[in-house]
Amino acid sequence: MKFLGFIVVCLTGALLLYGTGDFSNWGDPNSPASLHLSNEYIERALEETQVPNLVTAVLADYRGFDTMFETAVIFCAGLACFLLLRDFREKKQRFYRHIPTGVILHVKNSKKVLPVGREFEHIDKDWVPSDLIIKTVCRILVPFIQIYAMYVVAHGDFSPGGGFQGGVIFGSSLILIAISYDLKILVRRIKEKVFGIFAAVGVLIYVGIAALCMPMGGNFLDYSKLAPLLPGDPHHVRALGMLGVEIGVGIAVTAVMVIIYINIVSEGRLEEGL
């Protein structure tokens, strides 16, 4: 099987390499991909949308439909993870550590819950609380990562960035809390339900902004018709519409990243795990 696979792979690779002969050279400005649509985008996007970052302009405006359904795909992926893994059965056994003495308690009665705080802390069978240094460093880092994520979302129109990148950064800051402290602490601070609602709200913001253009007299996703609703220069209304859409994307991506993470590491129980 391995040998057969190797032969198939070699043949496919040889065919693909043979096919590269018809491709244009690396960095050729006259390659077919750079001759038609992209020139239109580069030359006219700033004038039409007032957004200097062409990637954002194409992403959220010219190809807005595509991005909307990509966001829906991400939402569906989060939903699929939740439906596949989430397990609502209560765990029967719990482990606690008495902090002053370091004694570990094994509670077999699932009804009995010890108050977690200065005296006791949760531990799992195969997980121990992280080191003080790790906790402190991550606690200092997390707010800066989150501010940076918001900056990346807000400046998506003018510099590299946007909803997808900012959302992933924000989601990773929440995952960092779960790694450095405990999954339970993250889920206790922000309820699982909130993540689910945020994932849906993010997609709804996108679709809502797109649909709002229709009663204002334009097509679906035609941001320029939102001008009466938004303050400021009417020339910048497309940029503001894109910003709103990007915020929706960012919220959805953040929530879905966390949903995927918490469900996979704890096998859907949201109790044990990294």
């Binding site: 990509e70 991400i74 992926a77 989060g78 997808f164 879905v256 990243m257 995927i260 996979i264």
Partner: peptide, 9 residues
């Protein structure tokens, strides 16, 4: 981003 999400699934 979609590849990350599908990888999660």
């Amino acid at each position: 981003v979609v590849s990350v999400a599908t990888f999660g699934v």
